[in-house]
Design a protein around this nucleic acid. Structure first.
Lengths: 239, 239
DNA sequence: CGACGAGTTGATACTAATCAACCCTTGTGG
DNA sequence: CCACAAGGGTTGATTAGTATCAACTCGTCG
């Protein structure tokens, strides 16, 4: 994992697969310099640290360099929905009229780069190529959130979990492709609040997937995945 | 409704409510001229016309000027999920590596402006202020899709429907604020596929909301809303 | 060693999908 | 002009998927 501002996790909407293989937008050294000048690096040493809260004044936009972060919204009646997990290369700090719409909490030690929101518009207009990467990233996230919506609306808990595990396995550093072993950085409760289920339901679904031979639980957070079978089962179609 | 490229429906993420009241980004006359030069106006005369399909080559990005459009994805097993309804001022044509990820279909006669995707990146980089409006729009849509996700994950069908009706009532031209009458441009099936329910479930929920005195059905598509009560019931919290 | 949070398992209840039948409106062709 | 078809909409009976509640285990850390 590069310990600096070098890449943004996104695949572009236009231009059909331009030879590149990584799902990352790479920043030129000039762009990196400009961003380093605008922002500063921050480290959160422990898991379960709050980075910002729903309704806080949105002072910063964050680029996650290393670690995993969760963003959730909680209803008055207490139910929590995790609307996104952020992995290295992701951007977080979604706001509405100067106020964060979610609460963000680390799930592991994290290092981030943060940029002052009040200087962001001017900066992006001055660096149209960087702004374009931010636009591509926003579109990427929009696409993924729509996909998540599709899963929530039309898939059973079992299939949602299968699809979720596959999503996690896309992040190198958490999935050992050689041995097919996924290290989950989040709890059952987190998974449940993300896929719209109860923690008990998630446990039961793990059990059923294991019984179906699609994975093997080495420990609650260590899973050996049969990716091909899971893919066929989750069946998120077309792509 | 202005019959031209004058505004984009979005509220910005940063700058705390800068005096403006409309939920639209207004385009300067230079910006309008540039966009008119890049794109062309198209009219779809009938409802249920397909604009593009999932997996088609993404040749265009669309700005909806007038009418309502639905974007959906369908799983191999046949279940359809509508991931967005588009209203005047919205942008559609979400793609992934040059391929549309959804299928878009008109729900009424529509006029759109369409821009060639292959010239878009160059254009946006040349007009950073327009690009910034596109970025703000993408962030706006991301926020709304996350909100939809929250509803799907944590609300009952009844509350999802209440929240949906309130969303619809935000679009002047479809909601007569004076008499509190909403004109739904979509069928029960469309509503169901959007809020993640069955058509029968939607009908029943309409019945229950009416029994609770939160609305009155003048006809299946004409609803007199008690907005305050609906808001209190749906209870999307915080803000 | 004890405590606490994460994880698991079982019993029960409930939300909402499914299946089936039917009504109502609209548009079309004989 | 009327009959009929077709699609949207509604209603009822049944069933399936999951949440909820409760109890209990496991593992880790002070």
């Amino acid at each position: 994992m590069p310990p600096d501002v070098t890449r943004i996790r996104a695949v572009p909407p236009w231009q059909p697969a331009f030879g590149e293989e990584t799902p990352f937008l790479l920043l030129s050294s000039e762009e990196q310099a400009a961003l380093r000048h605008l922002g500063t690096s921050i480290t959160f040493k422990t898991a379960r640290t709050q980075i910002y809260a729903h309704n806080d004044k949105a002072r910063f936009l964050y680029l996650l360099i290393d670690g995993v972060i969760e963003a959730d919204r909680t209803l008055p009646k207490g139910e929590r929905q995790i609307v996104a997990f952020y992995w290295p290369g992701d951007i977080l700090g979604l706001a509405d009229e100067g106020v964060y719409v979610n609460t963000a909490i680390t799930l592991s030690p994290c290092t981030v780069y943060r940029f002052p929101a009040d200087r962001l518009t001017k900066f992006l207009v001055e660096y149209p190529l960087i702004q374009h990467k931010f636009l591509v990233k926003a579109i990427h996230d929009l696409r993924n959130t729509q996909r998540q919506l599709l899963m929530m609306g039309r898939l059973s808990v079992l299939r949602r979990l299968a699809a979720f595990l596959l999503d996690c396995s896309a992040h190198e550093g958490y999935f050992d492709a050689k041995h097919r072993v996924l290290t989950l950085p989040m709890t059952r409760y987190d998974v449940a609040d993300y896929i719209g289920a109860s923690a008990e339901g998630v446990t039961r679904s793990f059990g059923r997937l294991e019984a179906m031979g699609m994975l093997h639980r080495l420990s609650p957070r260590l899973l050996e995945l049969k990716t091909a079978e899971l893919k066929a089962f989750a069946d998120l179609a077309g792509r």
